[in-house]
Amino acid sequence: MTFSLDLITGAVSFLITLLIFSYLIGDNPLFRIAIYAFVGVSSGYVAAVIFRQIILLRLFQPFAVAMISGSLLDKSLTLVPVLFSLLIFMKISPRLAGMGRVAMAFLVGVAAAVTIAGALTGTLLPQALGAINTFDMNAALARNIQPFEVIGSGAITLAGTIFTLIYFHFGAHPKPDGSMRRLGLIEIFAWLGRIFIGITLGAIFAGVYAAALTALIERIAFLINFIGKFL
């Protein structure tokens, strides 16, 4: 029997899989060994990737090229990331942390702008239009969907959207007994919205369970295949 790389990796994978499965009996050192190994290996790999693909290839190499053969504009453009990186690097010292505020402000501002613009143009408006278009007969017919199905699906989608939004409406008025309760109609819609939310969370839970079950099946199949190689 030759010890090939696949055999070694398969044996390590088999061992680590068993260590992870040992969590079934509770937190134990075997499980921790596997977790620590995974975290350590992942961190080392991530550090290597970041250094190689970001610091080296996107920071020092362009800067070096610009410094060597680039124009003034290139030098200036490549100097900005280096300068900002150094300013952010100053945050390791509490006394010099203030120097990194400019770079951080730039990053936060750009990230906020990108996120808000993307959410507005990529989620809010398109989702609103999608909720409206659920009753679009032409689109439904184009997708070979029957009109009653379109109406039913659209009605459920619209009701789910409205009821879910109403559920998160917390405006209330005081009652004579001192309690704070929402209006009766809103209370009913909120209750219905709670049902839709429950269904959604149930679907997500089912998806999580299905994903985990698939991963478990893959691991069991791996173990069976690995053991089957020696049988």
């Binding site: 398109p126 989702q127 239009l129 999608g130 278009n133 659920t134 989608t157 959604t200 679907a203 997500i204 089912a206 998806g207 999580v208 299905a210 994903a211 698939t214």
Partner: peptide
């Protein structure tokens, strides 16, 4: 993944 599909499906509807 199965756990993310329910939340990605609206983008298909839209």
């Amino acid at each position: 993944s199965a756990q993310a599909a329910p939340m990605i499906h609206p983008y298909f509807e839209s």
